[in-house]
Amino acid sequence: MALAAMPDPNGIPRSDAADIGNTDVHTLAASSHLKRLEAESIHVMREVAAEFANPVMLYSVGKDSSVLLHLMQKAFFPAPPPIPMMHVDTTWKFREMIAFRDRRAKETGCRLIVHTNQEGVAQGVNPFSHGASVHTDIMKTQALKQALDKYKFDAAIGGARRDEEKSRAKERVFSFRNAQHRWDPKSQRPELWNLYNTRIHKGESVRVFPLSNWTELDIWLYIYRENIEVPSLYLARERPVVERDGQLIMVDDDRMPLAPGEVPQMRKVRFRTLGCYPLTAAIESDADTLPAVIQEMLVARTSERQGRIIDQDASASMEKKKQEGYF
């Protein structure tokens, strides 16, 4: 690992990352910053449970969702989470994600709803022949709207953070959506202190972001401190990948069409975000334990959304998608 050659703005001792399994050394004292973030998020979740008739938590199996689920257990303890979680399954997720999801739902006692856009499946929509944007629109954005309409959820909790992207940085914690699920960035409700206006008319809904004020680093440190389980895709392993347009794509199953002469190679890679496997680029890394991942984070010079192929069309594309109902 090239850590020693990197600048070290945070003064972290430079040492090579470990290459044995995860450790269970968690000897940290109670801590103020993460505790404050945790309390703020718990406050938000309790407001949702108290003020909405039919809320849901959107669960995407990633690290932010893992933190959300953990916070939900804390917020309502000793009661089981009163808010079900829903996964919008595009059918192109990493196989490990699906197994992880089902196991975590069982372990936490949180009711799991899985929704897939069956029309999209019937039309054979996929990221290869339809392209990233069409696939994402039909299997993710449209699927989410279908599910919200079907179950008539009035509030949907999501794991988005303000440090992820420019239009996210502008979004409220309780973000209003009209009956067509659209976000109007020009007339958001003012949101003072921690007083959230939860009143809506029939058909309207609110997206709620309890992790708004967390950074990517906070998420990882919290996962570490609280010993929260995340899919091992976040840790570096030897995985079969192909290189396309400079991005490393993992061949997760045999649906992935290979170009003539293209042969998957075993490379030691990990993922900074998890989504549809053909649309989620891996990075080469030796960080195969949580502490090593966090160490890499501290010197990272590339923000995490870069691994999401869908964001690179135009820099305002996330805002456009959000206006149309993307989470």
């Binding site: 040492s15 910053h33 570490y224």
Partner: peptide, 25 residues
């Protein structure tokens, strides 16, 4: 050696976390 390095990484993160936590906001 592997174990030593692993412990070093954990210590580094613990130290960092400690500072991250006590730094005022």
């Amino acid at each position: 050696t592997t174990e030593n390095q692993s412990t070093a990484a954990v210590t580094a993160i613990d130290d960092y976390l400690q500072r991250h936590e006590t730094k005022s906001l």
